[in-house]
C-alpha cells in the first residue's frame, strides 16, 4: 500500500458517497446514467468473487464489500425507489456494444484461462469503458449538476491515482500487470475531456454545460 493507492481508494469511496448523497438528498437520480451504474455493478460483482476464496486483509475485504454493496444499492435506488426520476430518455447508450467486445477480449487476452481469472479480466476491461453511457448522457443533455460533476471527477481521479500507484510499484516493487495498466490508461484517457471542463468551469463556480 502506497500513498497513491490509498488516495485512489479514498477517491473512489468519495465518488460513491457523492453519488448516493446526490440521489438521497435531491430524492432524484436525474442526470445519472442507470446504464453506467448497471455496468459498475457488473464490474464489482464479477471482480470481487474472490471475496469467498482469497483473504488479503481486513481493509481489502471491507472495501470490496462497500464497493459491491454500494453499486448494487445505487442500481436499486435508480430502478426501484426513485425510478420515476430516472431520466431514461437521455440514457440511450447501447451497453451491448460494450459488453460483447469486452467479453470477447477477456476470453482472448487474460493471465490464465480459468473462470475467476477471466471474470476478473472482464471486470477490468468493462470498468475502463463503463463510464461511457454517463459521459454520453452528459454530452446529450449538454449539462450536469455540480454534485454529479464532483462525483465524476472523484471517480475519474481514482484510476488516475492508480496509474501513479502502478508507476510506484514498478520502480519500488518490480510489480506490473499489463492488463490492469492498459485498461487503467484507457479509463483515465476517457475522462480527459471531462477533467478539462471540470477544471475550467465547475471549479470556477460555473455549472458544467457544454457549448451547443
Amino acid at each position: 500500500m502506497n500513498i497513491f493507492r490509498l488516495a485512489g481508494d479514498l477517491s473512489h469511496l468519495l465518488a460513491i458517497i457523492l453519488l448516493l448523497l446526490k440521489i438521497w438528498t435531491t430524492r432524484s437520480c436525474a442526470g445519472v446514467s442507470g446504464k453506467s451504474q448497471i455496468l459498475f455493478a457488473i464490474v464489482y460483482v464479477t471482480r470481487y468473487l474472490d471475496l469467498f476464496s482469497n483473504f488479503v486483509s481486513l481493509y481489502n475485504t471491507v472495501m470490496k464489500i462497500v464497493f459491491v454493496g454500494s453499486s448494487l444499492g445505487t442500481v436499486y435506488l435508480m430502478y426501484m425507489k426513485f425510478k420515476a426520476t430516472y431520466d431514461h430518455n437521455h440514457d440511450t447508450f447501447r451497453i451491448e456494444f460494450l459488453l460483447l467486445p469486452v467479453a470477447g477480449l477477456s476470453l482472448l487476452i487474460n493471465h490464465d484461462f480459468s473462470v475467476l481469472e477471466i471474470l476478473w479480466t472482464f471486470s477490468i476491461y468493462l470498468e475502463s469503458v463503463a463510464i461511457l453511457p454517463q459521459l454520453f448522457m452528459v454530452s446529450k443533455t449538454g449539462e450536469a449538476e455540480s454534485i454529479t460533476s464532483h462525483y465524476l471527477f472523484a471517480l475519474g481521479s481514482y484510476r488516475a491515482l492508480y496509474l501513479l500507484n502502478w508507476v510506484y510499484r514498478y520502480y519500488f516493487e518490480g510489480f506490473w500487470d499489463p492488463i490492469a495498466i492498459v485498461a487503467g490508461v484507457v479509463q483515465t484517457v476517457l475522462y480527459c475531456d471531462f477533467f478539462y471542463l471540470y477544471v475550467t468551469k465547475v471549479l470556477k463556480g460555473k455549472k458544467l454545460s457544454l457549448p451547443a
Partner: peptide
C-alpha cells in the same frame, strides 16, 4: 504473474 491468489488491489 498477477494471479487470482495474489491480487491485492481493488
Amino acid at each position: 504473474r498477477y494471479s487470482v491468489l495474489t491480487k491485492d488491489e481493488l
